[in-house]
Design a protein around this nucleic acid. Structure first.
Length: 490
RNA sequence: GCCCCCGUCGUCUAGAGGCCUAGGACGCGGCCCUUUCAAGGCCGAAAUCAGGGGUUCGAAUCCCCUCGGGGGCACCA
């Protein structure tokens, strides 16, 4: 039978790293097996739905290149893929369980449940529903019904025995049934809980493998019990190790950026994030770090998923992103960079950015950035028209401390020599300036340093001659002139 | 409190009884390259394989216990 897996987020916010990692593994399994990747929206909690969250889910998946074969927008044989539009199925399933004496209606008020829980906590007992309505007589049942209380439907969990399931990553896991309680299947507003909806839909949609986060293992026995009560074959289960924050707690908003879209906005490349996330809990072998999407698909296997949780290591992600950035073609990188420059370059720099010009500065920063959003800060002097801002001491460096006049003379010599160039390119610039250093009795580094500051305003910048070539003659002469004037004014 | 899971360098991991005096990567330190900054290359520090018992000729690998960490225990997913 062909593999059918699903990613089933609830639209309660932007998908975060752990969540999308589960989506990634499901997608990889589907693609590796030539199976089907399904997107299903679990919008059964009316109160928690966040506007825009749905779009964020689509954007996150698309940005990472995780295309779904069935689901919203593409539709499919099991449409609709929104649980809020599948209520009949859950109602029917719930009736089926009630008829089979595997579920019952419960009329207890939320207040009473809260009291029961509080009481149990007080005596250090595990908080569990006390099953009051499970034992209701037909008469009592009719009474509640007559009061017009909207009931919930609860699952009739076996009071004894144990439930074992086989997990592909963890092996057999066993729970004592008496540690489980009669959980809710259908809420009083007529919507199903996750437990019901997920089991019903996984069955109806023919899901063969459920790969989800480790936080779900404790509710898995409930699901297994439900499959048994329905007489259905449960899917293969595999619980993925969780992704932790630096404090080893489950990764969450308080650890900072956890939304996939935030990583996009910070200038991470989708392939880099894909690669990084794919290596969180899975590995190809003992040495491979950079893995193409094709190779991930080719080699992905459930057997190589590890059990232990992983701390999200942003440093390594950043390194990996730099590696991917360096592999990008000139046009591709230029295109990626443009929006970041448009957005983050100082406001006084005129827009739109000149793309052919940008294309010339890109090679100068390609191996100097690890994230796209670092580019504006590194390149603003390439785009700035007026005077540069920098401390005059930088012009002096170590060599010219207390000798601004000497520095001015050196720069003036450079300016004069370079102004006479018939062709303003890297080679000519270097062939002119390098010998001049010796002529002036300066070390190349000393002279170049002063020029660098004059021309870029920075002590650290891309290679000098390439930089000057890109900046063009006019801008360089002007900046050299400004620096000389500054030094003479001191 | 109860249940479940996990435990190899700081971090991600390789390791499925002898190949391990434990390998790779990030990060860190040094050196080389070099006009600065990067990138790159080389070298290095860094794990008594959580601890303790077994099993075995032999254990990071199998078993047990302890400790530590995490997750779950809603009319949320």
């Amino acid at each position: 039978m062909s593999v059918r897996v699903r990613y089933a987020p609830s639209p309660t916010g932007e998908p975060h790293v752990g969540n999308i990692r589960a989506a990634l593994f499901n997608w990889l399994l589907a693609r590796h097996e030539g199976g089907t990747f399904i997107l299903r929206i679990e919008d059964t909690d009316q109160a928690r739905i966040v506007p825009g969250a749905l779009e964020a889910i689509f954007d996150s998946l698309r940005w990472l290149g995780l295309d779904w074969d069935e689901g919203p927008e593409v539709d499919g044989p099991h449409s609709p893929y929104f649980q809020s539009q599948r209520l009949e199925h859950y109602h029917q399933a719930s009736e089926q369980l009630i008829a089979a004496d595997a579920a019952y209606r419960c009329y207890c008020s939320p207040e009473r449940l809260e009291e029961v829980r509080a009481e149990q906590m007080r005596y250090k007992q595990p908080p569990k529903y006390d099953r009051r309505c499970r034992k209701l007589s037909p008469g009592e049942r009719r009474e509640r019904e007559a009061e017009g209380i909207a009931p919930v439907v609860r699952f009739k969990t076996p009071l004894s025995g144990q439930t074992t399931f086989h997990d592909l990553v963890r092996g057999d896991v066993t729970f004592e049934n008496d540690t489980l309680d009669d959980f809710v299947l259908l809420k009083s507003d007529g919507f199903p809980t996750y437990h019901l909806a997920n089991v019903v839909d996984d069955h109806l949609m023919g899901i063969t493998h459920v790969l989800r986060g480790d936080e779900w293992v404790s509710s898995t026995p409930r699901h297994v019990l439900m499959y048994q009560a329905f007489g259905w074959q449960p899917p293969v289960l595999a619980h993925l190790p969780m992704i932790l924050g630096p404090d080893r707690a489950k990764l969450s908003k308080r650890h900072g950026d956890t939304s996939i879209l935030q990583y996009r906005d910070k200038g991470f490349l989708p392939h880099a994030l894909f690669n990084f996330l794919g290596l969180l809990g899975w590995s190809l072998d003992d040495k491979t770090e950079i893995i193409s999407r094709q190779d991930f698909v080719r080699h992905f296997s459930l057997e190589r998923i590890v059990k232990n949780p992983a701390i999200f290591n942003i440093e390594k992600l950043t390194w990996m992103n730099g590696a991917y950035l360096r592999e990008l073609g000139l046009d591709e990188l230029t295109e990626q960079l443009a929006p970041f420059l448009e957005k983050h370059l100082p406001a006084d720099i005129s827009r739109p950015i000149d793309l052919p010009y940008l294309r010339r500065v890109v090679p100068l920063i390609q191996e100097r950035i690890k994230r796209l959003d670092e580019a504006p800060e590194l390149t603003d002097f390439f785009f700035r028209e007026g005077e540069l801002t920098y401390p005059t001491e930088h012009l002096l460096g170590k060599r010219f401390v207390d000798q601004p006049q000497q520095a001015a003379e050196a720069l003036a010599a450079v300016r004069e020599r370079v102004a006479a160039l018939d062709r303003w390119d890297e080679e000519n610039l270097e062939n002119t300036i390098r010998p001049l250093a010796e002529e002036l009795g300066l070390k190349t580094g000393e002279l170049f340093g002063a020029i660098r500051v004059a021309v870029t305003g920075r002590t650290a910048a891309p290679p000098l001659f390439e930089t000057m070539a890109v900046l063009e003659r006019e801008r360089c002469l002007e900046r050299l002139g400004a620096a000389i004037a500054r030094l003479r004014g001191v």
